[in-house]
Amino acid sequence: MNGVALIMRALHRGERRLAEQLEAVAARHRAEHEIHHVATDLARWSDEHCLRIAGEGVRHGLGLDGPAPDAADAGGTGAADAADHPDAGLLLLHDLWELHLVAAGNSLYWEMLTQAARAGHDDELGRLAAACHPRTLRQMRWTTTMLKNLSPQTLTVACDGSA
């Protein structure tokens, strides 16, 4: 298997993981409407990325499947509702942090794929990366924005409550 195929396989796995985690966060933080709705929308982007990578993977001899089955179809994510958690705010910050790290990893894979497409003069692969990478960057910007907005109050309340 060549390097491009390895990156595509890793990227497919990463996008699938991000979609699953976004769905779990949306379910766990259902009471936080912005989190719930935006995470659900962003999960759809990663699902679409999985489908597009799988389609392009055929050209590279890969047998990748599409996105993961819906959590509802698979019997749920097992994620408890955060509203019942005593430290729901801290749990949300942790969830956003994890989402950001997965999205950042995917972004690096998209960048590597872009560079490989340029070096190999592979226009189709370049178009795939050009279409999907900006969405991954948007996913990262959302987690960063949410962490910036939620951290001050969540962390100072958590600190005051434990002092």
Rank of each mutant, 00 (worst) to 15 (best):
A119Y: 11
W110F: 15
E48W: 10
P67T: 06
R127E: 12
P67L: 04
G61P: 06
G76M: 08
E98G: 03
D87P: 00
V102T: 15
A83V: 14
R59G: 06
L99R: 07
A82D: 12
E56A: 13
D81K: 01
E124W: 05
T114V: 01
G105Q: 11
A82F: 00
S107M: 10
L108W: 14
Y109W: 10
C50Y: 01
W110I: 05
N106M: 07
D123A: 15
A104P: 01
P86F: 08
G55D: 12
L64P: 04
L96T: 07
L125V: 04
L93V: 06
R127W: 03
L125Q: 03
A103S: 12
G126L: 10
G105V: 06
G61H: 08
H85R: 03
A117G: 01
H121Q: 11
H85K: 00
W110G: 05
R127L: 13
W110E: 09
A119I: 08
A80R: 12
A116N: 02
L125F: 06
L51Y: 08
G89H: 08
L51W: 08
G105I: 06
A83W: 10
M112S: 15
L101T: 12
A103D: 02
L96W: 01
E111T: 13
A74Y: 07
D65N: 12
E98W: 00
D87T: 09
V102L: 14
L96F: 09
D65R: 11
D70Y: 09
